[in-house]
């Protein structure tokens, strides 16, 4: 496997996508905790992870523009390149009307259909009460399964109460769930070769191949 300049087997990149709408948001808070947990677990395996945070709010207009125009403009171009080159993705959305937020889905819709194939993804969500927690299992997990991503077994939901002292759940409080999810993502990322960015021109078949395959 070719490694990019300055990349070594012990370096990985984690892109954290957060679809919270307020700043600061509990969605970003959960995303940060999940990222910290993954970085800590990777460090325990001798791997240094670079974390890139993407607040979808910051590129919301560009997301809509790309939906209409077909190309990425402004900061969104950079964001899409980072996702394409990530070794692991943490995707966190607020739950609106029983599912991921519209902005979150709009962002997923503009990803290249192969952008997340085989990619370790950890999903998380926030909501007012724990009654929304299964949206992770019936909405987010199938979405990333469709994209053929490698989704961590633990998906983390944080309700408002979860931020209380006891983590809202005395038996399996939020910090424990975050640690477990971070460990699962770290294991998947560590088991995988580092991602090398694939350019549009890296694998163009020669004309003889094109003609032969016609």
């Amino acid at each position: 496997m070719m490694l990019g300049k300055g990349t070594s087997m012990s370096d990985r990149s984690i892109v954290v996508i957060s679809a919270g709408l307020s700043q600061p948001s509990s969605t970003r808070l959960l995303a940060d905790r999940l990222a910290d947990a993954a970085v800590t677990e990777l460090a325990a395996r001798g791997i240094t992870a670079q974390v890139e945070h993407v607040e979808l709010r910051d590129v919301a207009h560009e997301v809509v523009n790309m939906t209409l125009s077909g190309f990425a403009s402004g900061a969104l171009k950079d964001v899409l390149e980072k996702v394409a080159a990530a070794d692991g993705v943490i995707a966190v959305t607020p739950i609106f009307s029983a599912s991921y937020s519209g902005l979150f889905k709009s962002f997923v819709d503009i990803l290249d259909k192969d952008a997340l194939v085989g990619r370790p993804v950890l999903v998380g969500a926030t909501g007012g009460t724990g009654r929304h927690s299964l949206a992770l299992e019936y909405a987010l997990r199938p979405l990333f399964a469709y994209l053929r991503a490698d989704v961590a077994g633990t998906a983390v939901f944080a309700a408002t109460d979860d931020w209380a002292d006891g983590g809202g759940d005395d038996v399996n409080p939020l910090p424990n769930r975050i640690r477990r999810a971070g460990r699962e993502l770290a294991e998947m990322v560590a088991d995988r070769e580092p991602s090398a960015p694939v350019g549009l021109y890296d694998a163009v078949p020669s004309f003889e191949q094109l003609l032969g395959g016609a």
Binding site: S69, G70, F71, S73, L200, Y201, V204, P205, S206, F207, L210
Partner: peptide, 30 residues
């Protein structure tokens, strides 16, 4: 968007036109 077509044009020594009107020119340049 398809380098295969640029490859085809190159193979035959034909012309290649990139209609970049809805795209950033850097994409056309590549």
């Amino acid at each position: 968007r398809s380098p295969e077509i640029a490859e085809q044009a190159a193979y035959y020594g034909d012309g290649f036109l990139h209609n970049a009107i809805f795209w950033p020119l850097e994409h056309a340049a590549q």
